[in-house]
Amino acid sequence: MLSHLVIGQTLYYGDTIFYVISFILLMWIIKVLAWGPVTKMMQERADKISNDIDSAEKSRNDAAGLVQKREAALANSRSEAQTIVNTAKTNGQQQREQIVTQAQADVQTLKQNAQKDIEQERQDALSDARNDVADLSIEIASKIIQRELKADDQKALIDSYIEGLGKQHES
């Protein structure tokens, strides 16, 4: 039909069919071997990249949040430490004062007790000494009297005594 268009040649209609069939077959083979898997992989990669970008953004935000939190915690702990130190200082001061006051009071009490004891001792000693002196003087006196009161002395004494009695009866 078309063979007169090409000079001196016969057209090979069979080739057309051959090429059409082989082209369609080739398309099918490429689709099965490469096109399907590769385009799927490319799509997966595109998805993965976009996911990675999203998750990177999220991680960055998380990290920023964590930094803020950490800084807040740091500031918080610093002020807390300050408070603790201050409290400890105040407590220490108070305790020191208390101890000193206590010590002073104790010393005062001890001193008073000691003075009282000393006074007591002195009084005891004095009274002891007074008693001893009295006893001694009595003993001495009795010893002296016993020795001095000889017969005539005794007689004189008795006489005086009787005289005394007589006088009393007369009156």
Binding site: Y12, D15, F18, S22, L26, I30, A34, V38
Partner: peptide
């Protein structure tokens, strides 16, 4: 089958066909 085929076209077409398949196969 009553159709005229050119040997050159069939041979060359088959060779190219196999080449394409080989390229696709080994790169995929």
């Amino acid at each position: 089958l009553g159709l005229t085929f050119s040997t050159a076209n069939i041979v060359a077409g088959s060779v190219v066909f196999l080449l394409v398949v080989a390229v696709i196969f080994f790169t995929s």
